[in-house]
């Protein structure tokens, strides 16, 4: 078990190294003078020179790379060109809303999707199954912003149950945070609900045709227990994989939701940085997002051992 985890952990190192290398050369692979690119079309030569010095672009490239890696290993992602704040600090400020939103979204999605997926698999090829799967197609097809504005209109403007927009940090009380995150979590959760329900159904269908399910029935096990105790745990691996990938995607991909609901998360930080060509922030975000994905992958792999004893060796 420990050996398995250590092996998985070591396997993340080369991945992160390649990402770091890519991010470093990102700036240098852009055609033309990177400093001029960053400064934009209507910058004076003095501005460009300033940026060049600030980013250390005037030094030899291997020296730049050495400094970059050295800083990276110490958790220093560079400094924003415009706000002069360390990128790490900017990211950390924006991390909480994004992580809270991602977790809330997945919680909502999983809470609905797994029971629905199990139900659809159990009632496969019946009206129940078709309704659930039809709903899941809808969940995919309807854009998040549409659902978002609809939810705001009904629950915030008409019913006045929840705030229209904005994010309340955890520090000011969990209930307020949850109220502020409820609508975006549902809006964003629809897609994931659809995805996870689909995977759950497919994975359950496969497991339900296995011999050991017949054995369970031959023992006199009742249907709920066949579904949950005998089948769901066997069907879990594809499901947790999708949930994990969903989490990673959510952290990096909440741009639209954060915009609709005016949440100051990583999505907004990314958009702003790209619009302003704040390269250090963009580079830092790529590293952070890659890191989150690698970490989530690692957690998914470790979670497999919980579901499948055969992987534990």
């Amino acid at each position: 078990m420990t050996a398995y985890i250590v092996r998985r952990l070591l396997a993340t190192i080369p991945v992160m190294a390649i990402v770091a290398l890519f991010v470093f050369f990102l700036l240098h692979l852009t055609p033309g003078d990177p400093a001029a690119v960053i400064a934009g079309d209507d910058a004076s030569p003095a501005d460009i020179e300033g940026i060049r010095r600030k980013l250390g672009l005037d030094r030899p490239i291997w020296e730049q790379f050495g400094v970059y890696v050295w800083n990276l290993l110490h958790g220093d992602l560079g400094t924003s060109i415009f706000s002069n704040m360390p990128v790490m600090t900017l990211v950390m400020q924006r991390l909480e809303p994004s992580v809270v939103l991602a977790i809330a979204t997945l919680t909502v999605a999983v809470a609905f999707a797994i029971p629905l997926g199990v139900l659809a698999a159990w009632k496969a090829d019946t009206a129940v199954d078709r309704v659930v799967m039809g709903f899941s197609v809808l969940g995919f097809a309807v854009p998040v912003f549409l659902v978002g504005y609809l939810l705001i209109y009904v629950f915030a403007i008409q019913l006045r149950w929840l705030p229209v927009q904005g994010y309340r940090p955890l520090a000011n009380g969990v209930v307020d945070t949850l109220r502020s995150i409820a609508l975006p979590a549902f809006a964003l959760g629809m897609t994931y609900m659809a995805l996870i329900a689909r995977i759950t159904r497919a994975s359950m269908l496969e497991v339900l045709s296995e011999d050991y399910i017949r054995t369970a029935r031959a023992k006199g096990v009742a249907t709920p227990s066949v579904l949950l105790r005998h089948a769901l745990k066997n069907a879990a691996i594809p499901i947790v994989t999708v949930i994990g990938i969903g989490f990673a995607l959510l952290i990096s991909g909440v741009v639209i939701t954060e915009t609709v609901f005016n949440i100051p998360g990583l999505g907004r930080l990314t958009v702003d940085a790209i619009l302003k060509r704040d390269y250090p922030i963009i580079q830092g975000l790529i590293i952070i997002f890659a890191g989150v994905k690698v970490l989530v992958n690692l957690l998914i792999d470790i979670s497999y051992t919980f579901f499948d004893p055969r992987i534990r060796q």
Binding site: Y212, T215, D308
Partner: peptide, 24 residues
Amino acid sequence: MRSIRGNRISMIFQEPMTSLNPVL
């Protein structure tokens, strides 16, 4: 039937490799 299966009438299947639940 559930109260009879596995209790008063039992069954053994051909494939011991796949007839037991791998996660229990």
